[in-house]
């Protein structure tokens, strides 16, 4: 009996995989395959679209919107680095100094995000308005020039992205930091001259899975985001997500919108693989 079960052990991972995997297969892979075929069609909404295996749309779409692609990746990298810098100390404090209220602190970090995005963003626009109570006051004190503004600049778009994706960084970081065995940290404190050195040699390397996961969860959605650039940005901050949105809804240019989407996915995939190699994570790269 137990021997029979042993023999079936190979099936266990598949049992774990099947429910979620099937879900993704049916509700993600199949529809995406349809979109892939749409990207190779030509035509228009009025005349109808027909599959012509138009692979030329891919290089064409890339060159047409190269600026927006590059800008999106630039913002994505900046946002990931900033959220890491802001989020790591937070996650560290919660994990190591949070005591019994760890889970509660964690909930506090995520709580603002149960509020509608529109309300949060409108609030930010109110706070950061040119004549609002923040900038207005600083201007009244003569600390800022009159023409200074934050909204509709790359700064406001990046701040918006950082704000909105910070929990995506903090949660996995916390998750990874929280499991680190304190005895290791103490041993390191005994061994190395300074706490900081101990942190660099022990805590940081041990938290790398969290850094990697957090970076993925922040970088990927921020590269593809369009909402922050729409509400907080200007013409000079148009991201590739805005282009895809507009191609899809304004132009009903479904093939090009899909093609741009797939290019974005491929580019992100490449970036992530490179990053995984750099960080030395075994995810995605090796079995």
């Amino acid at each position: 009996m137990t021997a029979a079960i042993r023999r079936l052990r190979w099936a266990i991972p598949y049992l774990f995989l099947v429910p979620g995997g099937l879900w993704l297969l049916i509700f993600f892979v199949v529809p995406m395959a349809v979109m892939a075929s749409i990207s190779l069609q030509t035509g228009s909404l009025g005349t109808g679209y027909a599959l012509t295996w138009n692979f030329g749309i891919y290089p064409e779409a890339i060159s047409q919107f190269a600026t927006q692609f590059l800008r999106s990746f630039e913002y994505g990298i900046i946002v990931t680095v900033l959220t890491l810098l802001i989020g790591y100390p937070m996650a560290y404090t919660i994990a190591f100094r949070g005591g019994r209220v760890k889970n509660i602190l964690l909930l506090l970090v995520i709580l603002p995000f149960f509020t509608s995005f529109i309300i949060r963003t409108l609030a930010w626009k109110l706070i950061l308005a040119d004549q609002g109570f923040l900038l207005g006051t600083l201007k009244a004190w003569g600390l800022l020039p009159d023409g200074f503004g934050l909204i509709a600049t790359p700064i406001s778009v990046i701040s918006g992205l950082v704000y909105n994706f910070l929990p995506f960084m903090v949660l996995p970081l916390y998750v990874a930091l929280e499991k680190i065995d304190h005895r290791l940290v103490e041993a390191a404190n005994d061994l190395y001259a300074s706490r900081f050195q101990a942190f660099l040699r022990v805590t940081l390397p041990l938290s790398m899975p969290g850094v990697f996961a957090g970076s993925l969860l922040t970088f990927i959605p921020s590269v593809g985001d369009f909402v922050n650039a729409t509400i907080l940005g200007s013409r000079e901050t148009t991201m590739i997500g805005n282009v895809i949105q507009s191609r899809f809804l304004d132009f009903n240019d479904y093939p090009r919108a899909s093609a741009l989407g797939f290019v974005l996915m491929a580019a992100i995939l490449v970036m992530v693989l490179v990053y995984a190699r750099l960080v030395g994570s075994d995810e995605l790269t090796s079995g």
Binding site: G21, L24, L25, M32, I220, G241, A257, L269
Partner: peptide, 16 residues
């Protein structure tokens, strides 16, 4: 398979 849905622009996912 896990990675791809995160990398897909929302509008593409919604439309598909």
């Amino acid at each position: 398979l896990i990675f791809l849905p995160m990398a897909t622009p929302e509008i593409i996912m919604g439309a598909s």
